[in-house]
């Protein structure tokens, strides 16, 4: 009995303090869990390695972020371009003076869109046999076509492999592990490649870029898919454990889109403004420069 009274009191305090209505213009910021490559990328390239504000809500997966933003007129979120649906993407400016750029294929490939990144494959030492064949194929003309099909962007022509080697004739299995962002892309590649070479089995699992790199360090996967570059510490771990380098292959490009609710008045945003929002310096939409609203 006493407890339920305390409950009523709690709700009354919560309601009475007006938390709900504190600021109609308040920004509700969503991000990704800190085990995602997207988190790391955003932190490095947008926040300049500052910490996220404590009240940035983190969700498991870009789809969850988009879903949350689509339901909340005050929300802002970011994630891979490949997913966008039901929310509005903002044009992004490198700084206040530069032009706002739409996150399109052309803009990402030319580098005009300021928050784009490479997606990578990593292998333990120089790949051989079927693993090498698969990586080269993914980076070839044929492999890069697959990227566009699932909403990512091909790597520039000079980084592609013109003539990928064929896999050895005997049957073998390739394991691929890592970035959640890349799971769908990885699966499409695998399907296509297995169609071309029926003797091959390619297994794709997610878990996050960090999980993939950890698997690489432990030697439990042939290929690690990662949406961020491996860091120095992890490189050292690989070297110490296996005496080989982790070899990096850019396999696709991805832009990070910034989303707001469809009803939002926002059209464009600068990297500085994004940094302000996600580090907690900017707390309300009306604090942003009127030009962008």
């Amino acid at each position: 009995m006493r407890k339920s009274f305390a409950g009523l009191a709690l709700v009354a305090v919560a309601g009475g303090s007006g938390c709900g209505q504190r600021n109609p213009s308040a920004i509700v910021a969503y991000g990704r869990e800190n085990n995602s490559g997207t988190y790391m990328y955003f932190k490095e390239h947008v926040l300049g390695n500052s910490d996220f504000a404590a009240n940035v809500q983190t969700l498991p997966g870009t789809a969850a972020v988009i879903n949350a933003v689509s339901k909340d007129p005050r929300a802002i979120g970011y994630g891979g371009i490949g997913y966008v649906k039901g929310v509005r993407t903002l044009r992004v400016k490198k700084d206040a003076a530069s032009a706002a750029v739409e996150p399109t294929l052309a803009n990402v490939v030319t580098g005009a869109y300021p928050i784009s990144r490479y997606l990578y494959f990593y292998s333990l030492g120089e790949p051989e046999g079927a693993v090498r064949a698969y990586i080269e194929w993914a980076r070839s003309e044929a492999g890069q076509k697959v990227c566009e099909g699932v909403g990512y962007y091909p790597i520039p022509a000079e980084k592609r492999v013109a003539a990928p080697v064929a896999p050895p004739a005997e049957a073998s299995t390739i394991t691929v592990k890592g970035s959640d962002t890349m799971v769908i892309l990885g699966q499409r590649w695998a399907e296509e490649y297995m169609k071309l070479h029926p003797g091959l089995v390619i297994q794709i699992t997610g878990g996050g870029s960090g999980t993939g790199i950890k698997a690489l360090i432990e030697g439990s996967t042939h290929i690690c898919q990662s949406s961020r570059p491996i860091n120095a510490k992890e490189r050292d771990h690989v070297k110490a454990k296996h005496g080989k380098e982790a070899v990096e292959f850019p396999v696709a490009m991805d832009g990070l889109a910034v989303f707001v609710h469809e009803s939002s008045a926002m059209q464009e945003i600068s990297l500085d403004q994004l940094k302000g929002i996600y580090t907690g310096e900017v707390k309300a939409w009306n604090e942003l420069a009127p030009a962008s609203r």
């Binding site: 869990e33 085990n35 983190t58 498991p60 996050g208 960090g210 432990e218 510490k233």
Partner: peptide, 8 residues
């Protein structure tokens, strides 16, 4: 959320 990522 974090154990999957943390460096062993």
């Amino acid at each position: 959320a974090e154990l999957g990522e943390a460096v062993h």
